[in-house]
């Protein structure tokens, strides 16, 4: 934590960046995002297990962009988000300084190549608990799985916290808000909720960086990340690719190749 604070102080004092997007202590034992603009206030920064939010989400917020060049306190998921945003031309080389955190260390990563190398060196598999959660879900039969999601989605309020919290959901006008035609019903009824949640997951297939913020943000605790994880596995199995590893990656579901084995697209 001291390393992070002194790095932040240095970056602000030397005007290398204008703002540090990091974590501070919040309410109820939670951490919250903080935007430090003065070296003297760097002591507000914390980093511990409560710091889970993927702060890369703030990169697309106009008020935050306006603060100037930022250094982002980046968890592994946030680093992957930066790479994926780069791959989707949402962030340019040099626009953002990543401060990779983990343990007591802080590693400034100024280039996409540096982020790629950092991510590659530490890329791991899901934890045992995460694997178990997904396996439990995948073990369900089709009918059981359908009932499971029907029950989960019946609670959905369509507050779009999942979308707002997702660093890859940066569209200014989401499909759910396009009404000519009305692809997704607006009301939070069974069909509207099913279509919204399936659409959200599908639009992230091959793009999701697996931070889990969708599920964490949900005020009614729908385990949305399960859908994303299932699709991550699917995309990896079919295409052999994992999003958020390269700043120049092709997106599995939006890249066309003339020699595609499927003929529906030809």
């Amino acid at each position: 934590m001291q390393a992070l604070r002194s790095k932040a102080r240095e970056l602000l004092a030397t005007k290398t960046v204008q703002v540090i997007i990091g974590y501070a202590s919040g309410g109820g034992g939670r951490a919250r995002a903080v935007f430090v603009r003065e070296a003297a206030k760097a002591d507000a920064l914390v980093f511990d297990d409560s710091c889970q939010q993927n702060l890369a989400v703030y990169f697309s917020k106009p008020e935050v962009r306006k603060l100037g060049k930022a250094a982002l306190v980046a968890t592994p998921a946030a680093l992957r988000a930066i790479l994926q945003l780069a791959a989707e031309n949402q962030i340019a080389e040099g626009e953002l300084l990543a401060l990779a955190v983990g343990g007591d260390d802080v590693v400034p990563l100024a280039t996409f190549a540096a982020i790629e190398a950092h991510v590659a060196a530490r890329d791991g598999d899901w934890s045992a608990a995460e694997k178990e959660e997904l396996q439990k879900y995948e073990a369900m039969g089709l009918e059981e799985r359908r009932r499971f999601w029907e029950e989960q989605f019946s609670r959905c309020l369509k507050c779009y916290a999942c979308r707002a919290a997702c660093p890859l959901c940066y569209c200014t006008r989401c499909t759910v808000e396009c009404n000519q035609p009305q692809w997704i019903p607006v009301p939070a009824h069974d069909l509207g909720n099913l279509e919204w949640n399936v659409m959200r997951a599908m639009h992230l297939a091959g793009r999701c960086v697996d931070c889990g913020d969708c599920g964490r943000a949900c005020p009614v605790n729908i385990p949305l990340h399960l859908l994303n994880r299932r699709l991550i596995r699917e995309v990896f199995t079919v295409f052999g690719s994992r999003s958020g590893r390269s700043a120049k990656g092709d997106n599995a579901l939006s890249t066309f190749k003339p020699n595609d084995p499927e003929d529906f697209i030809q």
Binding site: R32, K61, L157, C159, Y160, A161, A217, P219
Partner: peptide, 12 residues
Amino acid sequence: LRCLGCGACAYV
């Protein structure tokens, strides 16, 4: 600054 503009607050 940290508000993400979702509707969770309004809906609860």
